[in-house]
């Protein structure tokens, strides 16, 4: 039987079709988020069905997740991204004990129990300093894409010291650093380190390994290493990290 998960995130909508018998992803898709969230999610879902020559009735259940989960009218139910990320990570990496999810507008840290259920979580959705938004602001300032920003950071030998407290002030700092002749790669690496420190501060003192990195920011080159340094624990990027929430949603749909 086929189940669908729709992750209506703040920046992107992700969808996954999951084959419950084979326990594998059949198809996945992604598109930009917009104002008409329900319509966009519907369009993405229908495209996936079309591409795989499936009828709507072939899908036995749909779970929506993400900040726009309650806007997805065609879903059977909505589940938070925290629970869905746990389910998605558990599918790929059953021994995971900690998940850090950095998205466009928020970041989360989830602690899992031995069964893979969410034991506890922390969440930052009020400050852009620990989110992908920080990277976007800096990439824009440097005239680069996120991918290019990450690659640039990889060339840094001396990351710049950048405040992790506020994106607005950090942008001012960056202007100052550029004016003072700081290298763009050092600034890029400094920003990655600042985001990672913010996550480490949310994580607190106790963390269990392995730590799995999910969310769109996990795809940015250099972020995993920055996070590993800040957390002082090995960090593993989840397979298709952007799709983890949607995959978890599809898996939870199969259990309902």
């Amino acid at each position: 039987m086929i189940y669908a998960g729709i992750d209506a995130g703040s920046r992107m909508i992700k969808a996954v079709l999951f084959d419950a018998e084979r326990r594998q992803i059949m198809a996945s898709g992604i598109m930009d988020q917009g104002v008409q969230q329900d319509e966009l999610a519907q369009r993405l879902f229908e495209k996936l069905l079309r591409d795989h020559r499936l009828e709507r009735r072939a899908v036995s259940g749909i779970v929506a997740t993400g900040y726009g989960r309650h806007s997805v009218s065609f879903a059977d139910t909505a589940v938070t991204e925290i629970t869905c990320h746990a389910a998605g990570v558990r599918h790929h990496l059953p021994g995971a004990r900690t998940i850090t999810d950095i998205g466009g507008q928020d970041s989360k840290l989830m602690r899992l129990d031995a069964k893979g259920g969410v034991q506890d979580f922390d969440m930052n959705d009020r400050c852009a300093a620990g989110t992908g938004c920080f990277l976007e602001v800096v990439a824009r300032r440097l005239g680069l894409s996120l991918q290019e920003l990450g690659e640039l950071a990889g060339r840094s030998v001396k990351p710049a010291a950048i405040s992790s407290m506020c994106v607005v002030f950090a942008e001012t700092e960056i202007v100052g650093l550029l004016a003072a002749g700081a290298a763009a790669e050092d600034i890029a690496a400094g920003v990655q380190a600042a985001i990672a420190r913010r996550i480490a501060s949310m994580a607190g003192r106790t963390l269990d390994s392995p730590i799995i990195f999910t969310g769109g920011v996990a795809l940015v080159p250099g972020m995993r290493a920055a996070l590993q340094t800040a957390l002082a624990h090995p960090v593993v990027v989840a397979p298709e990290p952007q799709m983890t929430g949607a995959l978890g949603a599809a898996i939870l749909a199969s259990r309902q």
Binding site: Y67, T80, I82, T83, G117, F121, M123, D125
Partner: peptide
């Protein structure tokens, strides 16, 4: 909406 996410996630946990 963000409070809701936290509370819903807690209930799910």
């Amino acid at each position: 909406s963000t409070l809701r996410t936290r509370l819903e996630a807690l209930v799910e946990a």
